[in-house]
Amino acid sequence: MSDRLRTLTERRAEGGPSILMCALVAGDPFVEATVEHMQTIADAGADVIELLVPFSEPTYHGPVIRRGFERALQEDVSWQDVRTIAASFRATHDTPLIASSYYNPILALGEDRFVELVADVGFDGVMVADLPWDESGDLRARLDTRGLSMLPMVAPTTPTDRIEMMASESETYVIWTGHSGGELTLSRHDFEASMQTLRQHTDRPVVASMKISTDEEASAVATCCDGILVGSAIVWLIEGRDSDLSSRLARFVGDLRESLPQ
C-alpha cells in the first residue's frame, strides 16, 4: 500500500475524521480542465480523488457519469492523457489518487504497462468496475510489486464470507457500492443495518458510494460508516459548465467536508 493511502486508512481507523472521496472523469470536458477541477476539489477538502478513465460501455455507472464518459471520449481521452493529468496534479498536490476504469481499456494497454503507468505517475490505488476480486489476482499481484492497492468493493449482495475474504486479502479501506447504474439498492434504514453487519466482519474503514448529492445526505450516510464517495454530483456540476464552476465546485466539496463528522 502507498504511504499516502496507508496514512489515510490508518487516520480513520484510529478515530480521525471521516474520509471524503470525490470522483470525476478524466478529460471531461477536456484534459486541462480536469487538472484544474482536481486541484479545486483537493483544496476544498477532498481526502482522496477517484479519476474515472472513460470506457465506451459503462454498464455499472449511472446516466450522469455515462454522459461524462461520452464527453471525454469525444475528446479521445487516452492513457497518455491520464498520465498527463495525474502528473500535472502530482506537481502541486499530495492527495491520494485512485485510477478507476473498466477492465477492457486496461487489457488493451496491457496489465504490465498499466501498472507501470499508474505507479510512475503517482497513483495510489486502482478500482475496476467490472473486475471482481476473484478475477483480479494477477493484477493485484502486479500492483503490489509497485506498492499500489486495488480497493475492495462490496455490495448489498456480497455474502459475509466474501467480505472477510476481500478484507483479509487487502489493506486499504473498503468501498461500499450501494447503487447500481445510479439506482440506490437500499433504503437508508437497510443501509444502517448493512453497515452494522459489515462491522462484524471487518474492522477496516468503510467508504460508502450512495448517490450522495447534498451535504444533508452526506451527513446522514457518514454517521453510519467511515466516509463517503461522491461522484455523479460532481460530474453533474462539471456538466453544467457554469462560468463560476470552480467556485461552485469548491463550495460543494467544502460543504460536504463540513457536513462530515470530524
Binding site: 471482481p132 478475477e135 494477477d138 455490495a155 449482495t157 455474502p159 457500492t177
Partner: peptide, 26 residues
Amino acid sequence: MTRDNSERRYGRFGGRYVAEALWHPL
C-alpha cells in the same frame, strides 16, 4: 488474465467479469 477457477473458462476465454453486486447472484 487470472487463470484460476478454470471451471469458468474455455481455454483462456470466458470468466465472470462483473460488478461485485452481480457476483453472488451469478
